[in-house]
Design a protein around this nucleic acid. Structure first.
Length: 177
DNA sequence: ATACAGTTTCCTGTTT
DNA sequence: AAAACAGGAAACTGTA
């Protein structure tokens, strides 16, 4: 714990385009979203909610794939590698790379480190991809986030889906690049 | 082999 | 009613 507080986990040798973890590798889920863009019926399932959820998932994964392709300027922003092993670092790095986060997370107050989870299941999906765990849900992810209140990585904000970085979280401030 | 941190999973209850 | 929030408890996983 102290370890993660005192020194940055951004390793200089970890590049954004690490072949083991590229966005295109992580989000090549075409098989689950067959030719959606040419579809005009918008009803893949009997349940309209399931259809809606699938469209949302598709939007997220297709956005991520696109951003992976666009991010060929590999070393332009090395700190946004999203290789971080810890959840809070993953969230922070997502917040710090607006091109890649696809509107999943949004700053509420940049200076105070307050942010909002806009697409909860999208975030869970991404974290699940990162940990190679397709059973991840926002419910379970948020349990892990609540543990951060005890360690001062996060502070409580009494608004739904809103969190704030605490004194023991580092690397999120705008000035302290 | 052991220990520990950091989750992950599950659960029951409360709130929005 | 659905989605979030709250935490306790226990299982799990990677690292030292």
């Amino acid at each position: 714990m102290l370890d993660s507080v005192t020194h940055n986990t951004f390793l200089p040798n970890v590049s954004f385009c690490d072949p083991l973890m590229s966005w295109t590798d992580l989000f090549s889920n075409e098989e689950y979203y067959p030719a959606f863009e040419h579809q005009t019926g918008y009803s893949f399932f009997n349940d309209p909610e399931e259809t809606k959820a699938t469209i949302k998932d598709y939007a997220v994964s297709s956005c991520l794939k696109t951003s992976g392709i666009k991010s060929q300027d590999c070393h332009s922003h090395s700190r946004t590698s999203l290789q971080s092993s810890h959840l809070w670092e993953f969230v922070r790095d997502l917040l710090l790379s607006p091109e890649e986060n696809c509107g999943i997370l949004e700053w509420e107050d940049r200076e105070q480190g307050i942010f909002r989870v806009v697409k909860s299941e999208g975030l869970a999906k991404m974290w699940g991809q990162r940990k190679r765990n397709d059973r991840m849900t926002y419910e379970k992810l948020s349990r892990a986030l609540r543990y951060y209140y005890k360690t001062g990585i996060l502070e409580r904000v009494d608004r739904r889906l809103v969190y704030k970085f605490g004194k023991n979280a580092h690397g999120w401030q705008e000035d302290k690049l």
